[in-house]
């Protein structure tokens, strides 16, 4: 890529982020949004201060573990259900409706049910997994339907058995849609875990946000938010690269 093309491609997003940081800094520095909006540098300084590392580190460890577990569980269940609809085609309509129904029910409304069903510490994982399941299920089922008719014809004339056609054709054809789903599931898994912590978890970034808000620890509140957002964005970006690579190769 030439420098010009690079500028064209990465220039606007980088500029956008810089402008965002600048606006944050100015609003905070001049107290344009009141006392609850600190300058960006104050939040960064708070994050950098070793005195806060233990508190933030422990909370982040708990939350990120819940995110990872929710993401993996949701991906596993979503993939499993999608495979089931592929193997047992008549089950498709039923599973579709069930997944849509669960997705249409707000997680907040399900929270009380979770609270009597499971420990407070597993609720973040459960809500995160639930949201990811839906996304991955939709991505995988639509991916499994993305096989081109011409390719399916080819496999029929080659006398492919169903399992062969699945491995060599349907699965590779499904990868682009699946990779997009895996990327989109990242912020969803973070949201699920953070919200899940608001239902009585004893530790975590979500809990830290709530308690910092109630105790008016403004820099702590923003530090927790920034830490969550940055981690989510970085993972989203990495999976975006993965997605781009899959799309280049499999489409």
């Amino acid at each position: 890529m030439t420098l010009r093309a690079r500028l064209h491609r990465y220039g606007p997003p980088v500029l956008g982020v810089l402008l965002f940081c600048l606006a944050w800094q100015l609003i905070g520095a001049y107290r344009l949004a009141g006392m609850t909006w600190p300058p960006l540098t104050a939040v960064l300084a708070y994050l950098a201060d070793p005195a806060h590392h233990q508190l933030l580190g422990r909370a982040a460890g708990t939350t990120f573990a819940a995110v990872a577990l929710g993401y993996l569980t949701g991906t596993g269940i979503g993939l499993g259900l999608a495979l089931l609809t592929r193997l047992v085609r008549p089950a498709r309509a039923g599973i579709d409706r069930l997944v849509a129904l669960v997705h249409a029910t707000p997680a907040i409304a399900l929270a009380p049910v979770f609270m009597i069903l499971m420990s407070r510490e597993t609720i973040p994982v459960a809500i995160s997994a639930l949201a990811v399941t839906y996304l991955i299920y939709v991505a995988a089922t639509s991916g499994l339907e993305a096989t081109k008719a011409a390719h399916a014809d080819l496999f029929r004339t080659l006398g492919a058995r169903p399992l062969t056609a699945f491995w060599r054709l349907e699965l590779p054809s499904a990868l682009p849609a699946l990779a997009s789903g895996l990327k989109l599931a990242v912020p969803v898994s973070f949201m699920g875990a953070i919200v899940g912590e608001w239902f009585g978890a004893s530790r975590g970034l979500g809990l830290l946000m709530i308690s910092a808000m109630q105790n008016f620890q403004i820099p702590l509140l923003w530090a927790a938010v920034l830490l969550t957002t940055l981690t989510s964005l970085i993972l989203y970006g990495l999976l975006g690269l993965f997605e781009a690579a899959v799309h280049r190769r499999f489409r």
């Binding site: 390719h151 014809d153 062969t164 590779p172 499999f250």
Partner: peptide, 30 residues
């Protein structure tokens, strides 16, 4: 019985395989 060869009007090559892998595909399917 893998005894049929078809060249389609729109070629129907698999985009994720190389030329050699595409040509070898009938062996793998069989």
């Amino acid at each position: 019985a893998h005894r049929l060869g078809v060249a389609f009007q729109d070629h129907a090559l698999l985009p994720w395989l190389s030329v050699a892998q595409n040509i070898a595909l009938p062996y793998r399917v069989a």
